[in-house]
Design a protein around this nucleic acid. Structure first.
Ligand SMILES: [Mn+2]
Ligand SMILES: [Mn+2]
Ligand SMILES: [Zn+2]
Ligand SMILES: [Zn+2]
Lengths: 163, 163
DNA sequence: GTTAAATATTATAATGATTACAAAAATGAG
DNA sequence: CTCATTTTTGTAATCATTATAATATTTAAC
């Protein structure tokens, strides 16, 4: 009964403690990025929601609180974050750039049913013959169906087995 | 002297034997795809060159031999190949769809210097918590510098170590 | 606190890869 | 050969993103 701790964890999880605007402001300053208001809000969304949003998703959400915000501002700031290397760009799906403020090495799973992008823990990865290659970026991208979408599609799945 | 066979292999390799148009025609027919001439040539390029080309690269090459060919035809046939699942789509780089007729599980390395896309062998990959998820696609995409581009950039690399 | 320079934001135009569309050409069964 | 189906073509449309130039805001100097 003592072993088997750590229950099975959800793949995408909000951070335990949300970042305050003050903390974000400090962090951006440390990184040599001036903490303008819109900029703070874009980063806040990335770091506190962790939903791997597209630029447009961020724009649509922020527009509710800041009706004057421009789509270009969101794109501009995301580009800046990429240059400064405080967020990473995900290309799980073509024509759908998504952004992630988590930089530690992990993979992504996109559900083709609901469209959500989940984090995937990577326990080990062994590659052949990369001596002398300088690896600057690594991306592991999976696609498929999450448990609930799979449940909803059970019928089709079984159909596939026969047909 | 008997051990240590198999010298270090290049990451991207042309197939040992090129496919003839006849063999390709047969293969497409088997897959329920009618082997029109342009279609054959597009697939021939993918299967015999193995350079992970973009649609436009294929178009530019085929145009030399078939001046009347249309860019739309290349796109149409690539889309058909994807639907029929005889090629896979690579999203290593955003806004740069590349196509690969090798379907076995392997990763890709794109050199940021010369732009070439190499195959990477995957010896093992262990993921956490994907029970109940149905994985339909897996992509491992790396970016960096290949040995020769790295050599050419040695100066900059060392600069980075100091500055 | 005014002023001037630097930076950020905005609205809109431009880009570029891909797709949609409709007409023309090629193919194939009968 | 003839008609129906498929393929190809050329062009227009789409859509995410970037470029541009004007306006607004922030910062630092005086
Ligand atoms: Mn992530
Ligand atoms: Mn490959
Ligand atoms: Zn789902
Ligand atoms: Zn290179």
């Amino acid at each position: 009964m003592i072993t088997k701790m750590r229950a099975k964890t959800k793949l995408r999880k909000k951070p335990d403690k949300l970042w305050s605007l003050d903390e974000i402001s400090q962090f951006l300053s440390q990184q040599g990025i001036r903490p303008s208001f819109h900029r703070l809000k874009v980063f806040e969304y990335l770091i506190n929601e962790r939903t791997h949003p597209t630029a447009d998703e961020i724009y649509e959400v922020l527009k509710k609180e800041i009706p004057a915000i421009s789509r270009a501002t969101v794109y501009n700031n995301l580009r800046l974050f990429l240059e400064k290397q405080i967020v990473q760009l995900l290309n799980v799906e073509k024509n759908e750039a998504r952004y992630d403020a988590t930089l530690s090495w992990h993979g992504h799973f996109k559900c083709l049913g609901c469209g959500q992008v989940y984090d995937v823990g990577i326990e080990s990865l062994k590659l052949s013959w990369l001596d002398n290659y300088q690896v600057l970026e690594k991306h592991l991208d999976l696609k498929g169906l999450c448990p609930s979408c799979r449940e909803r599609n059970k019928f089709k799945e079984q159909e596939g087995l026969n047909g």
